[in-house]
Amino acid sequence: MLEVKNLVAGYGTIPVLRDVSLTAKAGEILLIGGENGAGKSTLMRAIAGFNKPDSGEILLDGKAIGGIAPEKVAQSGLRLVLDGHRVFPELSVFDNLRMGAAARRGDRAGFNNAVEEIYSVFPILKEKQKLYARDLSGGQQQMLALGQAFIAQPKVLLCDEPSMGLAQALLPPILAFLRRWAQTGTAVVIVEQHLAVTAPYADRAMIIERGQVKFSCLASELDEKLNAPAVAAE
């Protein structure tokens, strides 16, 4: 389980997040939404170790990981899939998937089974497994990045804007894959702007506004919460 408590973080002396708290439980998908510049990506980067928190706690299964190096965070069982399809362009599709297997050395059978599962979910990757990753479309690179993360079998998956650069039709299959993955016991956190498409696949939702949590709710209640009339201050 991932826990973030009263997190304050930003860039140098510029604060972005103020007193942000969340919980991501094993087997669940937490959807995080908010406008551009709200602090969603800063939150993901702080959890993954790329931005050092100014204060607050980040706990993975009760162990503090806030402020440690990204590679140490990854070794503890957390994986961040960034927007923009960060794959190794000069490696083949298959070799990119092999890069996700660093955490499961010696488990060749497990790796092979995981690759076959990825190929069954995203058949285009099997079809293009010998091509360089640079020759894939943006959507195919997003599938490949998710495949890398799946093979690493993290306890917590952070997925920052999986729809970035994708045709809208490609998002539901990716969300369905993440839904099935979460059900195996992984805690999945998705940052996404397409809330109406993503919410049906999530368990809980949280909206960030100007670096703070505006509200959190069940994902099934998100549309109602977003469209509730504002209550005028007395």
Results as ranks from 00 to 15, higher is better:
Ala38Gly: 05
Glu224Val: 04
Glu71Gly: 00
Ala187Arg: 04
Ala187Met: 03
Ala233Met: 14
Glu192Arg: 12
Gly37Ser: 03
Pro70Leu: 06
Leu222Asn: 12
Val16Glu: 04
Leu175Ser: 08
Gln183Gly: 10
Ala149Pro: 12
Gly56Cys: 08
Ala205His: 05
Ala114Asp: 11
Ser41Pro: 01
Leu157Ser: 07
Ala167Pro: 12
Leu17Glu: 02
Lys72Pro: 00
Leu131His: 11
Asp107Ile: 11
Leu157Ile: 09
Leu31Thr: 05
Phe111Val: 07
Val93Leu: 09
Tyr119Trp: 15
Gly66Ala: 09
Met1Asp: 05
Leu195Glu: 10
Cys217Arg: 07
Leu226Ile: 07
Leu222Gly: 11
Leu17His: 06
Ile58Glu: 03
Ala102Lys: 03
Ala199His: 11
Lys225Ile: 01
Asn113Ile: 14
Gln129Cys: 13
Ala103Lys: 06
Leu195Lys: 03
Ala101Phe: 04
Thr198Val: 14
Gly10Met: 03
Ile68Gln: 02
Ala48Lys: 00
Ser76Ala: 15
Arg108Gln: 13
Phe88Glu: 00
Arg45Lys: 15
Met44Ala: 13
Asp54Leu: 05
Arg98Cys: 11
Pro89Gln: 13
Arg18Trp: 12
Leu178Ser: 04
Lys72Thr: 08
Asp95Trp: 00
Leu43Cys: 09
Ala103Asn: 01
Glu117Ile: 07
Gly12Ala: 10
Pro229Gln: 06
Pro200Ser: 08
Arg79Pro: 00
Lys25His: 07
Glu224Pro: 10
Leu125Glu: 02
Tyr132Lys: 14
Ser137Glu: 03
Gly67Ala: 10
Gly110Asn: 10
Arg179Trp: 05
Gln153Asp: 14
Gly33Gln: 01
Ser55Gln: 10
Ala182Lys: 03
Ala102Glu: 01
Asp95Phe: 01
Arg210Asp: 10
Arg104Trp: 00
Arg104Gln: 11
Lys63Cys: 02
Ala26His: 04
Ala167Met: 13
Ala182Val: 12
Ser41His: 02
Leu218Gln: 13
Ala26Val: 01
Gly211Met: 04
Tyr11Ala: 09
Val188Pro: 08
Phe111Tyr: 14
Glu192Asn: 07
Phe122Glu: 01
Gly165Trp: 05
Lys128Met: 03
Lys25Tyr: 08
Ile208Leu: 15
His85Gly: 03
Arg45Thr: 02
Met143Thr: 06
Lys40Val: 11
Thr13Asn: 13
Leu82Pro: 15
Gly147Gln: 10
Ile58Ala: 06
Gln193Pro: 06
Val191Thr: 05
Thr13Arg: 15
Gly165Glu: 08
Ala219Gly: 11
Gly62Leu: 06
Leu60Lys: 14
Leu178Ile: 05
Gly34Trp: 06
Ala167Val: 14
Val81Thr: 04
